[in-house]
Write a protein that binds this DNA or RNA. Structure first.
Length: 284
DNA sequence: CTAGGGTTAG
């Protein structure tokens, strides 16, 4: 594994800009043409945000807003919003969305909203998040599957499984915008809230509706079954999975392997037989 | 260039 070089603490804003201009001069460009473009600046801002050096990120953004360099775009502001959310400065992050962006005529896209949504769920909870989701819709920004994954995750994390299911029925399924990540979120939620059967039914419904869940989706359920000691159910799910043409992967095996230690604990014989039979089929 | 990722093990 190549070791990632860490950026020295003292490698700060002023120095950064100096080096950018030097690069320009070496290339023989006139100094006025050496100003870093928006992508360069966004990349630097992103780096500062990732290091938690939000002040330096803000400094660049403010210079851009004041007309030094080029104007910030949606990526610039989204990057800073994320940086702020990550350090808990929610108020200021929302100010950027609600004040600075409109003032500067920069329209937030779905990525901006998704970033904000995640932050809002974590820090303000579900009702505020749904508010943001609504304002996103009224803003004419179309949700994507990441949006829906964030919402399902957010609801399930606060144990609102029913809400999540309703959101799936009312919004996600009709939208036809859903992928393996959304399925994973909505399967994992019930599993973690002790509603394993609900999760199973949901998966089978999906398949009935023509969706093809992937191996990770199945692994989530198989893992839960194993953790609950439901060996027969685990086998059953593996069987259903194989019907769809999927085969156990390394993770599935690692999950199933745990069952071996539990053989005979409180598991009925037929379940064991079925399990062994299942194993044999895997080897074919 | 911006979010965002899901299962096992350790």
């Amino acid at each position: 594994m190549p070791q990632r070089k860490s950026v020295p603490e003292e490698f700060a804003y002023g120095q950064m800009i100096d080096s950018l201009c030097k690069v320009g001069r070496h290339n023989g460009a006139a100094q006025s043409q050496c100003k870093p473009d928006v992508i360069t600046l966004n990349t630097i801002i992103s780096g500062f945000c990732r290091m938690g050096r939000i002040e330096e990120a803000l400094k660049i953004m403010n210079d851009m807003l004041m007309g030094k360099f080029t104007s910030p775009n949606a990526v610039t502001l989204t990057t800073v919003i994320c940086g702020m959310l990550n350090v808990g400065r929610i108020r200021e992050a929302l100010d950027l969305l609600h004040k600075v962006m409109p003032e500067k005529g920069v329209r937030p896209g779905v990525v901006t909203y998704n970033a904000v949504l995640r932050g809002i769920f974590k820090l303000y909870g579900e009702s505020k998040a749904i508010e943001v989701f609504s304002s996103m819709e009224s803003d004419g920004v179309l949700a994507n599957s990441t949006t829906y994954t964030i919402i399902v995750d957010g609801l399930c994390e606060s144990n609102q499984i029913e809400e999540a299911k309703r959101f799936w029925d009312d919004v996600i399924w009709p939208s036809n915008i859903h992928d393996d990540f959304v399925y994973a979120a909505i399967l994992k939620g019930p599993c973690q809230s002790g509603k394993f059967n609900e999760a199973c039914n949901f998966l089978y419904e999906l398949v009935d509706c023509g969706v093809s869940p992937n191996i990770v989706n199945y692994n989530i359920l198989i893992d839960r079954a194993c953790k609950l000691g439901l060996k027969a159910e685990a086998c059953q799910i593996v069987g259903e999975m194989r019907k769809t043409g999927l085969t156990a992967d390394a993770v599935t095996w690692r999950i199933l392997d745990k069952l071996h230690g539990n053989v005979g604990k409180q598991v009925c014989v037929s379940a064991n037989a079925q399990f062994e039979e299942g194993l044999q089929e895997f080897y074919c």
